[in-house]
């Protein structure tokens, strides 16, 4: 639980407020799996839980949105700067259980970050899965993460990748509308698919509903939840959602196991 020193190897600006950092360990390397998170500590400022957003060899990849003091400090770190990291914590996307099935990935906003390693895994092990159907939603075209990578995914003949924005801006020629609208037409077999969903909580609730309406059992839909986390290891109590501690038992949950909890206001 003691942070491990890392250096920023590279920093890439994704949007006006979001940056992707590659971190190189100066001691023991941390090797997270898709869906897990690390606690990133900006020296003297504070520590936050951030999902793993990449799978680069020898480096940790985290995509951080500057919304508070700590995330702003992290996003302003130049290559070579010090970052402390603890982890990996939490569970992972059920990529092994999905083998042999269609894989449906639905991302909203920064929710694409924790899904990116899962998508990359599926593309790298393409023969393990049936249809690969990816739906990406963002508020505006300027909020889209990993644009070049999404374009590369869309260029592949063995993946269905669709993108939509809630509100278009001049020059946008793509789809406009909520990401839930992509689900009825997505080319997967609901009888034999596994879905991975991440985004704002209300978006996930509606995506699960749309997937269930397509005929998927909620037990094959997985969502990644967010709550306040201070320790990451089940000791501080902050990330409780009813009977579960999200840092310890999640962040990835089967939708049917938490659906009832998400319906309770302010739980």
């Amino acid at each position: 639980m003691t942070p491990v020193p890392h250096r920023v190897r590279s920093r890439v600006r994704e949007t006006h407020d979001t940056w992707t950092l590659e971190l190189e360990s100066l001691a023991e390397p941390i090797r997270p799996r898709a869906g897990q998170f690390d606690m990133l500590y900006a020296h003297g400022v504070g520590e936050v839980p951030i999902s793993v957003s990449g799978d680069h060899e020898g480096a940790l990849t985290h995509t951080v949105r500057a919304v508070g003091a700590v995330t702003s400090a992290l996003c302003s770190l130049e290559p070579g700067a010090l970052v402390w990291v603890r982890g990996p914590y939490g569970n992972e996307w059920p990529l092994a259980e999905a083998v042999g099935r269609d894989l449906v990935v639905v991302a909203g906003g920064i929710g694409l970050a924790p899904l990116r390693p899962a998508i990359r895994h599926a593309l790298a092990h393409r023969e393990d899965y049936g249809v690969l159907s990816v739906a990406v939603g963002a508020r505006t075209p300027a909020d889209l993460l990993y644009v070049h990578e999404i374009e590369a995914w869309r260029a592949r003949l063995d993946a269905e990748v669709d993108v939509t924005v809630d509100a278009a801006t001049p020059g946008w020629r793509g789809r406009v509308g909520l990401v839930t609208k992509l689900i009825p037409g997505a080319p997967f077999d609901p009888e034999n698919a596994v879905a991975l969903v991440c985004g704002p909580e209300v978006m996930m609730i509606f995506v699960v509903r749309a997937l269930v309406e397509r005929g998927m059992p909620a037990s094959r839909i997985w969502i990644s939840l967010e709550r306040n986390m201070r320790c990451g290891v089940g000791h501080c109590g902050h990330c409780q959602l009813g009977p579960t501690l999200i840092c310890r038992d999640g962040p990835v949950y089967r939708a049917d196991e938490v659906a009832r909890l998400l319906e309770v206001r302010e739980l």
Partner: peptide, 14 residues
């Protein structure tokens, strides 16, 4: 048992 974490720094020596 709930706790929080306070990260503090010394402005004089960092």
């Amino acid at each position: 048992f709930c706790t929080s974490v306070e990260d503090v720094n010394d402005l004089a020596d960092g």
